[in-house]
Computed example of a mutant assay.
Amino acid sequence: MTGRTELELADWRRRVAQLYAAVRAEAEPAVGHALWRAGRDALFREHPQSALRADDPLRETGLPFWPYDPDLRFELPLGPVPEGTRTLELPSGETGSTLLRAVGVLELPDPVGGSLTVWWLEQYAGGLFLPMRDGTAGGDPATSSYGGGRYLLDTAKGADLGAVGDRMVIDLNFLYHPSCRYDDAWLCPLAPPENSVTARVEAGERMA
């Protein structure tokens, strides 16, 4: 990377962190979600670190997403990691891999069900990482999300919905696609099998 590129990347992370801080400060979750959508679209439209190619029509239309569903927002305790759960090395493209360490498990209530492992990034900038793959992954773009899954939390980039006491805020309406969904020049760790649920989570970003 050139010095200019590194400055742009630092600015992207700063703006993402500021956007999530504004979301956490908003008392009404649906209003916070609308704020997040507008801010994310602005970054993808205008920022030099946008994953969208210059001619991508999504720069004008905004990123597709499902309407906000208040039933998909939870405050969940982080349970213990099952005995024998290992660190996980995920390929991140030709440059190497990403090492993750399990730090806890979230049990998703109805209408989703299933469990998700919360990971700690052992390199990069550190931080909590929560990818997820659900029943919408792959298939007809009009009714699906990216086949490799989506992200919910990535605190290394400031993507953090916060906590209420000792419970994590898990709002599936904030599921977003990794950059490699828009351009395969980007290298992204994808959701491991431990982070897959069978239910269709029609919330967050979708393909079309």
Rank of each mutant, 00 (worst) to 15 (best):
Thr117Tyr: 01
Arg200Pro: 03
Met1Thr: 07
Ala102Pro: 10
Gly39Thr: 10
Leu19Met: 14
Tyr68His: 06
Gly165His: 04
Pro131Val: 03
Arg40His: 09
Pro141Phe: 15
Trp36Gly: 10
Ala203Pro: 00
Trp66Gly: 06
Glu107Asp: 14
His177Cys: 00
Arg15Cys: 00
Pro111Asp: 12
Leu128His: 14
Leu76Glu: 03
Asp55Lys: 01
Leu161Tyr: 04
Thr85Cys: 13
Val31Gln: 15
Trp120Lys: 09
Leu172Ile: 14
Trp120Ser: 09
Ser50Val: 08
Ser50Leu: 10
Cys180Leu: 14
Val164Ala: 11
Thr98Pro: 06
Glu8Tyr: 10
Leu88His: 15
Leu88Lys: 15
Gly139Lys: 00
Asp184Leu: 05
Leu43Ala: 03
Phe74Ala: 11
Asp11Leu: 09
Trp119Tyr: 13
Asp71Met: 09
Leu43Trp: 01
Asp110Glu: 14
Ala185Asn: 06
Arg45Tyr: 02
Gly139His: 04
Glu8Thr: 13
Pro178Glu: 07
Met168Tyr: 06
Ala163Lys: 11
Tyr68Pro: 03
Asp110Tyr: 00
Leu100Glu: 12
Arg101Ser: 10
Arg59Tyr: 02
Thr198Ile: 06
Glu8Arg: 06
Ala199Leu: 09
Gly32Trp: 04
Arg13Pro: 01
Asp154Tyr: 09
Glu28Gly: 12
Pro48Trp: 05
Glu46Tyr: 07
Lys157Phe: 14
Arg59Ile: 01
Gly32His: 11
Val164Gln: 08
Ser145Lys: 04
Glu89Gln: 08
Leu99Asp: 07
Phe44Arg: 04
Leu116Trp: 05
Trp66His: 11
Phe174Trp: 06
Val105Ser: 09
Gly39Val: 11
Gly165Glu: 08
Asp154Thr: 07
Glu83Gln: 14
Gly127Lys: 02
Ala199Arg: 11
Gly32Pro: 09
Ala34Ile: 08
Gly204Met: 06
Ala142Val: 05
Ser50Met: 13
Leu99Val: 14
Gly96Lys: 10
Ala185Leu: 13
Arg101Ile: 04
Glu83Leu: 13
Thr2Met: 05
Leu106Cys: 02
Asp71Gln: 15
Glu194Arg: 03
Gly148Val: 07
Met132Arg: 02
Ala30Met: 06
Glu60Ala: 15
Trp186Phe: 15
Gly62His: 06
Leu108Pro: 00
Thr136Leu: 04
Gly147Pro: 05
Ala159Cys: 01
Pro57Cys: 12
Val81Trp: 03
Met132Trp: 02
Asp140Leu: 08
Asp55Val: 05
Asp160Met: 05
Gly149Gln: 01
Tyr20Ala: 10
Leu43Val: 03
Tyr68Leu: 04
Gly113Met: 08
Ile170Thr: 09
Val201Cys: 00
Ala22Asp: 14
Phe129Ser: 00
Asn173Cys: 11
Arg59Pro: 01
Val112Leu: 08
Glu94Cys: 10
Gly114Val: 04
Trp66Pro: 05
Leu72Ile: 06
Arg53Ser: 08
Pro141Ile: 15
Thr98Val: 13
Leu130Tyr: 09
Met207Gln: 10
Trp12Pro: 03
Tyr20Glu: 02
Phe65Tyr: 12
Asp184Cys: 01
Leu9Val: 03
Ala21Glu: 12
Ala38Pro: 00
Pro80Ser: 12
Arg167Phe: 02
Trp186Thr: 08
